[in-house]
Design a protein around this nucleic acid. Structure first.
Lengths: 214, 214
DNA sequence: CTGCCCATGTAAATCGTTACATGATTAC
DNA sequence: GTAATCATGTAACGATTTACATGGGCAG
């Protein structure tokens, strides 16, 4: 049911069409909720039916374009939801399951696993960083729009919350990259001295924390 | 479709009944895949039908108890899956959506949000730490079982992978706790000097990294 | 006039949750 | 005997993905 509120939040900054929502929600990262048009359009209909949003047909464009905006009820419902205690989803991590049972595979296969992991989070990091930086510089377009309708005295608070959100996302991606690099270093070490019983190399608990990024 | 392989991996260490699988998969964290009996039992049936596992009725207990073990085909299918490139799930983070749109709420409501976040990950941390520690000390029961059937020369590799997995989970939980504490410190600062325009407190990018844990 | 982006959907299938159901065994 | 735990499910619902469908506007 979170998709509903993610859309509602999006519309609380500015009215938008289903297509515009689709664009933000389809970009793999950046927004914190991904969804496809086949879910978005029915959800918009449903919320209009509930009276949380209202859609206006833009005959000006002669396209079949509907721009939705929040109603007073929709605003209240959004407010209720954001203040409610968050319900954390169950842990489901296929990457970890794979890693744990890769112990019958070659080091090369394990290496591919970590390299893919690193690449994945490097891509995410780039997106989160650009959002964070735009937020810090005050050029984030959606943040700018949101500030426009609010009193100056509230700006510090509004900006601060976004900074925390994006900074947290950056940190998460950095952690995953560091972890993968630490794991790759461990593999290097294993392969370098393949048959020693002495001085066993274990993935060091300490080394993870150091910043060894190139 | 990952549930199938999570179960398969579980059974690759030791044969088990649906109920035993259910117990591990129901514990909120600890295992990296949560699932309920209503999903597990049908999945076992289906995999038996596919010939990946085989179930034996334990008449000894006079209970309707079926113990499943991997077939050679099942082992191959598991191996294929773990080596396949991981497919990362879409980003869906209700916590972040809430945070971003909490900007019309009171600082007290925002504080509750961060405190709940910290509590949630402190609980997770306790579980992951106990698993990591048991792995490091060599007392993790499932790891011990897995090592038993494998050649001594493989042990270092097998143990190392588990350590990496659990260490990564510990780090993730620690990151979330640090982040929440940093956020709470920012709130404190905001409320301490409520109306100054000078020396604006922003959620510092630097402070997150420091270790300020009690 | 072709291909791309705008713009909106529907239908079927899959994956996961919630609620309910049943009976046997074990500890008090 | 009665409550907890063992042990296995089924049915309905909800959320998400995949595949398919349609048509207008605009640039080359």
């Amino acid at each position: 049911m979170s998709l509903r509120y993610a859309i509602l939040g999006f519309l609380s900054t500015t009215p938008a069409t289903g297509y515009e929502i689709k664009r933000e929600f389809q970009i793999a990262v950046g927004w914190s909720w991904e969804a496809l048009p086949s879910q978005i359009y029915p959800e918009l209909r449903e919320m209009e039916h509930l009276g949380w949003i209202r859609g206006k047909l833009c005959l000006a464009d002669r396209l079949n374009k509907r721009t939705y905006h929040l109603t007073a009820l929709g605003e209240r419902e959004l407010q209720k939801w954001v203040e409610a205690e968050n319900d954390y989803p169950p842990v489901r991590d296929a990457e970890r399951i794979r890693l744990i049972f890769l112990d019958k595979s070659s080091p090369a296969a394990v290496r591919r696993h970590f390299e893919h992991h690193r690449r994945h989070f490097e891509k995410q990091l780039a997106v989160w960083q650009s959002q964070r930086d735009a937020t810090n510089k005050g050029t984030h377009p959606r943040l700018v729009k949101r500030l426009a309708s609010r009193d100056e005295s509230e700006h510090e608070f509004i900006i601060g919350l976004k900074q925390l959100a994006f900074e947290g996302n950056v940190r998460r991606a950095q952690l995953e990259i560091q972890w993968a690099e630490n794991a790759l270093a461990w593999l290097d070490q294993l392969q370098a001295k393949p048959k020693r019983k002495q001085a066993v190399a274990r993935p060091s608990t300490r080394a993870v924390g150091r910043r060894g990024r190139k």
